[in-house]
Design a protein around this nucleic acid. Structure first.
Length: 295
DNA sequence: ATAGCGCCCTGGTGGC
DNA sequence: TGCCACCAGGGCGCTA
């Protein structure tokens, strides 16, 4: 369930609480979330190195890790001349996708482990970056740049909707000829990055568009409203630190404050017209909308 | 090419 | 009250 606003909130927490810290040790309690990466490689690429930045791409968190060469330079006045020629340092990043139930927390070492604790990174300031995942669907790995570039999800990922160059023209081009329902199309990360079930429903409600409409049949005016609504919705949710939900908290354990207008509100009153909000299944996903406002 | 489905997993829920 | 079948869902891989 963490979508762009939740992941962005986590990114900001990490920028404050993890960037600049050295990883002094790792602990892998549930190896499954390494998604096949050997624990030895995970450790080798992280321990003793520094988290140098906190980036987000769609719903991925990407934390660049120092090469480790700086330690050699500190200890030895004279680094080997040939080192550059032989092998440029391969850049590594900590790559995290929370999928449905992943959580990232920065907790003081010694804080009792949560029930779904999977992986912990001990940091040089005495805190631990802890990955929790009730369903173990998520993933946390230390990947080289070439490995990141070949991740299918990242390689084909569409544009970031909060970047200044994303607009209705870009969206319109991506929707041309699509006969899939617009709701399902918005969930396709190749069309726009970072939108999940909550914000797809929220943006379509704000734009007054029926989620079942074939994506390629939206009028120019509707696509314009949709692009605007996507940005407004995501910005409001980022501003609120993510959606209020039992399943989501930021790196400090604080819940989100954004309250969806229609998501998970089937049977309740439409905040615009007072009619009853509908709940249907669309492309296998629970979909909430107002049949009166969105037609 | 593309759409639809099953899979991964476990807590919560509704029915009996 | 207790048990159990069933449901939710992001992204990937397979099938038609």
């Amino acid at each position: 369930m963490p979508e762009l606003p939740e992941v962005e909130t986590l990114r900001r927490g990490l920028a404050k609480g993890a960037v600049g810290r050295r990883i002094v040790q790792i602990d892998v309690a549930i190896a499954k979330v390494l998604k096949g990466q050997p624990e030895s490689i995970f450790a080798e690429r992280l321990v003793g190195r520094t988290i140098t930045d906190a980036n987000r791409r769609g719903k991925y968190l990407i934390l660049p890790i120092s090469t480790g060469d700086e330690a050699a330079y500190c200890n030895d006045a004279e680094p080997p001349e040939s080192s550059n020629a032989v092998r440029p340092p391969s850049s590594v990043s900590l790559c995290i996708h929370l999928k449905m139930r992943g959580q990232l927390l920065l907790e003081a070492a010694g804080t009792p482990f949560g029930k779904y604790y999977c992986v912990g990174l001990g940091l040089s300031d005495g805190f631990e970056l802890r990955y929790h995942d009730m369903w173990t669907w998520g993933e946390i790995r230390a990947l080289r740049q070439d490995e990141i570039d070949s991740l299918p999800g990242l390689a084909g990922m569409g544009p970031e909707p909060l970047e200044p160059d994303w607009n209705e023209t870009v969206l319109q081009r991506a929707l041309v000829g699509k006969r899939t329902a617009i709701k399902s199309t918005l969930l396709d990360q190749r069309i726009v990055a970072g939108i999940g079930n909550i914000y797809a429903d929220e943006a379509l409600f704000l734009a007054k568009i029926d989620p079942k409409r074939p994506a390629g049949e939206l009028t120019g005016a509707e696509t314009g409203r949709l692009a605007q609504s996507i940005r407004e919705t995501l910005l409001a949710a980022v501003d609120g630190g993510g959606t209020m939900s039992d399943d989501y908290m930021d790196t400090a354990g604080v819940a989100g404050r954004y309250q969806p207008r229609v998501y998970d509100r089937g049977g309740q009153a439409c905040p615009t017209c007072g009619g009853v909000l509908s709940r249907i299944r669309l492309g296998g996903r629970g979909t909430f909308f107002c049949g009166s406002c969105q037609s």
